[in-house]
Design a protein around this nucleic acid. Structure first.
Lengths: 241, 241
DNA sequence: CGTAAATTTGAATGGATTCAAACGTGGTGG
DNA sequence: CCACCACGTTTGAATCCATTCAAATTTACG
């Protein structure tokens, strides 16, 4: 973390809550409700890094010691699981408001996945001791945490039912629909062909062929940074008749 | 729930903690630690049903109001997600110690799946108000709950990486390995061909062909209630090399 | 501007699906 | 007790979809 290319700001100023993108943060939400200035919370907050990561930078790696949570403020993060034999599979695509690395809170000593920024990601790294300290001081994150945990579960379920069922064409249509709906803007993140393959459980070549096919059929336009899709047409493909 | 064929016992006696199978229960663990006899906990416990369900009985249905948690004491429960177009997919296989219906705790108003007993299942139905009441009285389930939540997440991840990746043969080998390791006895639950297909994302026919093939190759024996497998040989198949 | 990485495309192969039919098993009622 | 039906399972054959391996092409970037 916090290596070349990433911008690190420390959460120690009163502008803490001034940023609208903090709105979805577990920690902030709880603090805001209960007032900040007490006990040693100031020093605890000093250890929360607010970081901006360029695409491809990793937040944490599979099997590394799980010592922090990551609260996503902006952008998309992929959670990749690597099998002992080397093939990688994307098991979740997290967005603003989601928490990455929840296993750390459940007592796991290692991360289950490698978390990597897909586009420019803005996130807060929250070391476990910070959570422990706050809870010892009477904070209760449980309500917020449950929602984030459920959000992770829902996402995992989607990967099973939407991205690992049906033909490759259906899977891709569903993935694109998901990407555009979690972006709100007309465009959406443009994944590499390998990432699409790793998310859908198909080969990179199949992903490429299908994307090319979709483009010829006018279902998608553009590419590069942002991809534009014909949501209505994709919906027809996503669910067989 | 609690319809024909199921045995219902109510948790109101002091034999509550006498049963070894309660050992893994979230509620019990917490109560045991902090002493039971206080406030209105007795009346709250009255509402926890300890039920024994025969195979195929459902605990709850997808889209029904999510008003209770289920703590599994024994047996295997499948969580099935049905798509609007009718195809079903098994997204998790829960075992003793797991919690089903966690979405209820995260504020979801409907269940995300249909939960069905695969073999004889012994479970406790814990209405949400019971949890709320206990938490209001100062109970803290968060540590236990996080573990169960993580367990559900791990299970979902397995379904993506182990049961939805690779050839159908690899997937089946991995599924059988999972089933035997969570049974401890030499045998394991014998799933229907449709269930195997729904878990692996392959057709029922493919599941049947592979099971027949495994049997011819001597990888599995028996069937009916309990199935015996050659774990070592299955492990070779599970991971390509 | 040149090299490395990502993408596209082709052709052959193989795996899984679909549709169909046959088989077995358990349960019900005549 | 046996005939019969329902349901799960097995198996076959044709088809289709996706993979693999390979090569060509484009793109990104120092």
């Amino acid at each position: 973390m916090a290596t070349r290319g990433s911008v690190v700001r420390i959460c120690r100023t009163s502008t803490l809550f001034a940023d609208g993108r903090c709105a979805s943060c577990v920690i902030r939400n709880t603090l805001e409700r209960k007032r900040l200035q007490e006990e040693g919370l100031q020093s605890a907050l000093l250890r929360i890094d607010n970081t901006s990561l360029p695409p491809k930078r990793t937040l944490y790696r599979q099997d590394a010691p799980a010592d922090a949570l990551y609260s996503l403020r902006q952008g998309t993060v992929k959670l990749v699981r690597e099998t002992p034999t080397g093939e990688k599979r994307i098991v979740r695509l997290l967005k603003a408001g989601d928490l990455a690395g929840l296993e750390a809170l459940a007592g796991a000593d290692r991360y289950r996945h490698t978390a990597t920024a897909v586009d420019v990601v803005d996130c807060c790294r929250i070391p476990l001791p910070v959570i422990a300290h706050m809870e010892a001081a009477g904070r209760d994150f449980s309500v917020e945490l449950r929602k984030r945990w459920q959000s992770n579960l829902d996402e995992a379920d989607s990967f099973i039912t939407a991205f690992a069922s049906g033909t490759a064409e259906q899977r891709l249509a569903r993935l694109l629909l998901k990407l555009i709906e979690q972006h709100s803007t007309p465009g959406c993140v443009s994944l590499t062909r390998s990432d699409i393959g790793a998310a859908l459980g198909v080969s990179m070549e199949t992903a490429s062929r299908l994307m090319a096919d979709f483009r010829r059929r006018g279902l998608i336009h553009g590419g590069g940074r942002s991809l534009e899709c014909d949501a209505a047409a994709l919906r027809d493909l996503a669910n067989p008749r």
